[in-house]
Amino acid sequence: MSPAMGQPGTLTKKQSDALAAYNKAASDFESILGQRRAQIDSNQRLPNLPGQALYLARNNMLSTYKDLTDALPSRIGGPNKYGIPPAYLDAGVEPLLDQYRKLFDLMQAPPANAQKSDTPFKDVVDLGTAIARAKGLDAAGAEAAGRISLGLFFAETNGNQNIGNARSNTYKGSLQTGPSEDQNGRRKWAAIKTSIAAFDPALSLRDDREEARAGNLDHRFNHWTAVRDALMSAHADIFPQVATIVKTLPNPIDQMKLFELIQIIPAPTRSGLKSGDLVNYRISDPRIMGYLRNNSIFTFGQADRARTSATYREILDAMWLFNAKFEEALAKFDEIKARQKR
């Protein structure tokens, strides 16, 4: 990988420092990628949370590039295949992000006893739709809930079922839940299953089969039960507000982002929904801003990290790292709906 180009003699000290910081960050990212790849290829024991160092190095590369383009706007280049704003990513380092994703796929591979589904995307849509119907939504609202649910699957796992987590020892499975969230979801599902069986007996029978199949297995490693319990734990109680959310946020990707925020910062997001003016509802609690930054929102560059508050409209706009995931989810959803109409 070639370093960022520049002519030091023509740069100010601030610009020169920013260029040097970026070149070092890109080199460090390349180095840790190579180190982790060598460890995997030679079957060495990986450190605890082996993805954390990669994640931080990637973030530092994006951050220092944003600082560079803030100091030297001429460095902003063309678009990249990851849909990252060009001010944050030099398209020339795309191969490093390719390596990054491949390594995470290896490090987060499902355990050998995980129980996969042959229809993972349809399962998510079916469960989200059924839960929404049980919560009283009409056909249009239930369809939107199914679409949003598929977006959550892609946001959490890039559409990969039953995965581990290279950055956490707590969150696992198709919707990356912890043990307490999974248990909470199972209890909530039991409370509405009878009503679901009344209008969708086929789905209820599928659920019985998956429960029997999972047995004493951690339910987060059966794709069906993992998705079901995660949706029931964090999102089902918000489904009755889907019609209002769709009206407030007509863009389907914004809708998915909002439900992802219910997972990241649940209490403020619920408060924002209750406020009657969601898009202008402002977050200013430093702790909540920290949670956002830990999930790649206002994370990259000194200007972003210096923010002390943000409205929900600003937060949604800053979730650009999720855009490609949600666009893929929308494409899969359209495929599912098209097959159902045949």
Rank of each mutant, 00 (worst) to 15 (best):
G77A: 10
L49A: 14
N59I: 11
R36S: 13
Q39T: 05
P85Y: 02
G78W: 07
S74C: 00
Y22V: 00
L97T: 02
L62K: 07
R36G: 03
L96G: 04
A38W: 12
F104W: 02
K14P: 03
K14G: 14
L96H: 04
G83D: 05
A18C: 08
A20V: 12
L72P: 05
P50C: 11
F29R: 01
P95H: 08
N23Y: 07
K13Q: 13
L68F: 07
I76N: 02
P73N: 13
L56A: 13
S16Y: 10
F104P: 00
T64D: 07
L56Y: 11
Y100K: 04
A38F: 12
D28P: 04
G92F: 07
A87F: 00
P50Y: 08
E30L: 12
T69R: 01
V93T: 06
Q44P: 03
G83T: 11
D67E: 12
L62N: 06
G77R: 03
S31R: 14
P85M: 02
T10Y: 15
L11Y: 05
D70N: 11
K24E: 09
A20T: 11
L106V: 13
K81N: 12
P86L: 00
G83C: 12
P95V: 10
S27L: 14
A18P: 03
G9T: 04
L19W: 00
D41L: 11
Q15R: 04
N23M: 12
N23L: 08
Q7M: 14
Y22D: 00
A18N: 06
A25F: 01
L46K: 08
I40Y: 09
D28C: 06
N60M: 11
I84G: 01
G34Y: 09
A71D: 15
Q35E: 15
P95K: 08
K14I: 10
K102M: 10
K81M: 09
R45A: 15
